[in-house]
Design a protein around this nucleic acid. Sequence first.
DNA 1: GCAGATACGAAAGATTATTGCGCGTGCTTT
DNA 2: AAAGCACGCGCAATAATCTTTCGTATCTGC
Lengths: 166, 166
Amino acid sequence: MAGTRLDPIDRKILAELQADGRMTNVELAKRVGISAPPCLRRVRTLEEAGYIRGYHADVDARELGFEVQVFAMVGLASQAEVDLTAFEDRCRAWPLVRECHMLNGEVDFILKCAAPDLSSFQRFLTGELLTTPNVASVKTSLVIRGAKDEPGVPFDVLEERLSNSA
Amino acid sequence: MAGTRLDPIDRKILAELQADGRMTNVELAKRVGISAPPCLRRVRTLEEAGYIRGYHADVDARELGFEVQVFAMVGLASQAEVDLTAFEDRCRAWPLVRECHMLNGEVDFILKCAAPDLSSFQRFLTGELLTTPNVASVKTSLVIRGAKDEPGVPFDVLEERLSNSA
DNA sequence: GCAGATACGAAAGATTATTGCGCGTGCTTT
DNA sequence: AAAGCACGCGCAATAATCTTTCGTATCTGC
């Protein structure tokens, strides 16, 4: 099922649902140029094949009282697979950590965190992250302001790429 | 409208829609403990008040051929407001740049980028980002693997916080 | 205690989701 | 080539959901 290739309609569906995940199926069908039933079948197939992982409301963190967003660059003392996994498990357990990516280069992980205020984050930083075994260094950077926050992938780049390779 | 406070039901709605943005309104109403009509009214109000910015399908970038994800730390030569805004505008115009956050500290911006492959990204890096006026330094880190990628904010932290301050 | 505002829930009509089925298209097989 | 097969579309019908309308309860402020 992983080798299932997508046709232009499937890609359009994904692009539309990425832009508006609550679009009704009839509206979606209209936009991609087929009738509703096959459109819904395609969506289900895309979901089951894993192209669509889920749907999420994009909530305004600041309006909700999460004033602080921080990127944390974490270096570990040991990069053995066991230790990497252990740290990842910790990250998954921390609610304030929204994203955790393993990187190449001098920094091992980058964490995107959301906290109600600075003191909450500091408490997490000093009380949790810095006291975690194997954590050697943490450099944090506060987000002053967000300039762009697009979800997912740029489908126009994908289309361009496919038309060039045709 | 910004001062509109949320009650526990509103917060539950937001939490549920963040977890599953395609949930039907009747299912949502059932979960938050009210009937469908007032539930829909609340959702509309939350949307109009800006608590909900939109809904997005979470697509699998790798399955779609975006094998490469990169964080780029960008330093500018001038941090005058005009120059900051100019750089942000550039970022908004680059499809490969999915997120752009202004930071404190030595690095001015962090960019999250998605590209089909390494050479695509290198082409963007050398041909676009590095040739942009006012860009003084760029340090890139490839994402080896993703360990956590939760959308939005941790509502359990919010609830905990509210119950403590009551 | 009494307006007024606010928000709920029941009912009804409109819209949408979902299933079943027949048809056409394209590919493989003979 | 022509028959057979698989795949995917669209139509029609049914089930579920969405959305509006309306009457009532609860709360607030006077």
